[in-house]
Design a protein around this nucleic acid. Structure first.
Length: 377
RNA sequence: GGUGGGGUAGCGAAGUGGCUAAACGCGGUGGACUGUAAAUCCACUCUCUCCGAGUUCGGUGGUUCGAAUCCACUCCCCACCA
């Protein structure tokens, strides 16, 4: 499905751009940060929470929903939107990341990937055709081609084989796609740190004419310099008139660096995961809320934030919730962290529109109190 | 008063002659987390000048090359019986 991506404004200094695309569930303004809701839930957050935060898009996961509750049940429920009560845009990952994250439990072959389910021990087979069928059943607005997210580091030879297979798989996904009028399909550029493989992969995928292009296989342990180098060389190879999606990136600094290099979409479990683990992203850096220094800190988590959590609760209270193992803490930090990244992308759009993107980027870096070499960026 | 059980690091609790500064859990203090096998995981948590050394297992005194572990006395706690 053509997302009718439109560029509304280009930055004067960089490849950053403000754009918008349209799905059956609304208009999405880019750059956008998308919260991850693997199992048909952004952990701890309700639809209302996400709407208040301003989430335009959330993710679901093919592999996990296939296993539980099963794509047929979701289809019977009327699709993923109805099933989980989310009427804005949904993007589904294909299971390609599970080829990476469940590496110990799977075996890759040309035909597809065999997994041993981590709970049931059941043998599962996922292929480009099956992953596409599942996503057709789920009814997401944007589907991902089934790929291999390769590990870092990987040898050139390994990566070359992997990339070639991912390209063949991308073609198979495109051929298997049955709802071309309602669901967009993105190809995923792989190639690790090898720029010639990235180039080759991008060119081959572009020939297949996808509705958008993802950059995958980053944020898997490689240094930030490599991420930026790969982006610098890869985004220019992707069509300007299609959305570009950097998968799995959610640190504020990397989002800014990627927007600068022409990326439009981001997703990451980081805000929700670290929230449940007691950390918050704030305009002045990361805060580990359990730390003793916040015991008597009756100020908001982030004085520059207007999210529900920051408007209503203090650091001392949030610390108390975590020390006392109270579940409200997970929710309040999740609300804040997702808000933080959604607000960041909103501010990025504004800055680009006002021709001050680089200035804004530098301010965020400066306020965070970190420099570009820090891992948090 | 009698009989039995027990006193181990902040708490709970292993350990009954050397491999024990003492398992493990909790608590405490730091840290990690990036297309979610994650309300998870890691480190430290007697003292010091932290390589290394010094003091510990209710108290005191013994036995022994060596004791949290064995013996004697003693002080507390619990249960049951009077």
């Amino acid at each position: 499905m053509d997302l009718k991506f439109k560029i509304l404004k280009k930055d004067k200094d960089t490849l950053a751009r403000v754009g918008e695309f349209r799905t059956p569930h609304g208009v999405v303004e880019t750059p956008v940060f998308m919260a991850v809701g693997t199992q048909a839930t952004v952990k701890t957050l309700t639809k209302e929470d996400l709407e208040t935060i301003g989430s335009q898009v959330i993710l679901g996961n093919t592999y996990h929903l296939w296993n539980q509750p099963g794509n047929e049940i979701v289809k019977e429920a009327g699709g993923l939107h109805k099933f989980m009560n989310w009427d804005r845009t949904i993007l589904t990952d294909s299971g390609g990341f599970q080829v990476f994250s469940l590496a110990k439990l799977r075996d890759i072959k040309e035909e597809g990937v065999t997994f041993k389910h981590h709970k049931s021990g059941k043998k599962l087979f996922l292929s480009p055709e099956i992953a596409t069928k599942i996503q057709n059943d789920l009814g997401s607005d944007i589907m991902m081609a089934f790929d291999e997210c390769p590990p870092y580091p990987a040898t050139y030879e390994y990566m070359k084989n992997s990339v070639e297979r991912t390209i063949r798989w991308a073609k198979r996904c495109k051929d298997a796609h049955e709802n071309e009028d309602t669901q967009a399909l993105f190809g995923i550029v792989q190639g690790g740190e090898y720029l010639d493989l990235r180039k080759h992969c991008a060119e081959e995928l572009v020939k297949l004419d996808f509705d958008g292009y993802s950059i995958g296989g980053l944020s898997v342990g490689e240094p930030k310099e490599i991420q930026n180098e790969v982006l610098t060389h890869t985004t220019p190879l992707l069509p300007e008139d299609k959305p570009r999606y950097l998968m799995g990136v959610g640190s504020p600094g990397m989002i800014l660096d990627a927007v600068e290099r022409g990326v439009d979409m981001f997703d990451c479990v980081l805000p929700t995961r670290i929230a449940r683990h007691g950390s918050a992203m704030t305009t002045r850096g990361r805060v580990i809320i359990k730390n003793k220094e916040f015991e008597r800190d009756f100020s908001p988590l982030d004085e520059n934030c207007d999210c529900y959590t920051c408007k209503n609760y203090t650091r001392a209270y949030l610390r108390h919730l975590f020390k006392a193992d109270e579940i409200l803490g997970y929710k309040l930090l999740s609300i804040h962290n997702v808000s933080f990244l959604v607000n960041l992308t909103t501010n990025i759009r504004l800055a680009i529109k006002e021709d001050r993107f680089l200035e804004y980027k530098e301010k965020v870096y400066r306020d965070y109190g970190l420099n570009e070499k820090d891992k948090d960026f």
